[in-house]
């Protein structure tokens, strides 16, 4: 039993050490690429931008629109009791812009990109491509992670804009049909209560989520066992780790923003 615990502690320590090392390498390579942008792998970045961004637009629009509708419906059921249906616009607006927009987009990105990153890097590990990179003196982090990170840093905030707009429209749809509120009144109310800062802080959140999803996906890929099952496990672990990091990050960011009154 003692051996098991000692083994576990040792493994955890080693894994944590490797994770910190990976984070350090990521920071270093990001700085290197920013300094020497000609070395940056633009084409890879565009590929991941298409994969995680452009190809996710439709699913983001659909899910966020439905999320806005669900939110509005749930809020309307409660607020009708008090005759405060117009406040549905407040609830939907704040929830979508400050929380659910960035969160839902990050979840979709986790499903699409996080697991794909882990599987891709895991498969490269199986095929010894990572080893090949290392022996060529090319940093795998710079070659594989940095383009993904920049692509996600661009794609997620842009997707969040789409998600926010779709969510607000979902709420508007329910407000104007289910609640019989005038479209103009609902829209004016939404625009009155929301501020550009709400939108900007949501985008800041989505940038942080982009870093977390990329980090979790790539880290689990590098940690993948060099076999088919190992790659599958790493993809699953990447999704779980991403969701955990996103939720924890969201809580910390919300607390941080709340300290400044937002």
């Amino acid at each position: 039993m003692e051996d098991l615990v000692a083994n576990w502690a040792q493994n955890t320590h080693k894994r944590f050490h490797r994770m910190v090392e990976f984070l350090g390498a990521l920071c270093r390579e990001v700085v290197c690429d920013l300094r020497n942008w000609r070395r940056f792998r633009w084409r890879d970045m565009l590929y991941y931008l298409a994969l995680c961004g452009q190809k996710s637009v439709s699913i983001v629009l659909l899910i966020c629109f439905l999320m806005g509708m669900v939110l509005a419906l749930q809020a309307a059921l409660q607020m009708r009791k008090f005759g405060t249906e117009l406040f549905v616009a407040d609830l939907v607006g704040f929830s979508i812009l400050k929380e659910l927009g960035p969160l839902m987009v990050a979840m979709i990105a986790t499903g699409r990109a996080g697991s794909a990153f882990a599987a891709e890097i895991g498969t490269m590990k199986v095929n010894e491509e990572i080893a090949a990179l290392t022996t060529m003196g090319v940093s795998p982090v710079r070659f594989l992670v940095v383009p993904k990170l920049f692509a996600m840093l661009i794609a997620l905030p842009l997707l969040t804009v789409f998600g926010d707009a779709a969510g607000l429209l979902g709420g508007l749809f329910i407000g104007s049909t289910w609640l019989d509120l005038p479209v103009q009144a609902y829209w004016s109310r939404t625009m009155d209560v929301l501020s550009p800062m709400n939108l900007v802080l949501g985008l800041v959140k989505s940038c942080v989520f982009a870093v977390l999803v990329t980090f979790a996906g790539c880290w689990r890929g590098f940690e993948s066992e060099p076999d088919a099952q190992g790659v599958g496990r790493s993809a699953t672990d990447a999704v779980v780790m991403s969701i955990l990091l996103i939720v924890v990050g969201d809580m910390l960011l919300t607390m941080f923003f709340a300290m400044f009154g937002y």
């Binding site: 010894e128 491509e129 060529m136």
Partner: peptide, 30 residues
């Protein structure tokens, strides 16, 4: 590492790049 080359069992070519780009990679780096 710059002074030696390595070939792997399966070739370890990068699937996202063409064959020529794979060969060009060390040249671009060094």
């Amino acid at each position: 590492m710059k002074r030696f080359g390595v070939t792997y069992q399966g070739g370890a070519l990068f699937g996202s790049m063409t064959v020529a780009e794979n060969v060009m990679l060390p040249l671009a780096e060094y």
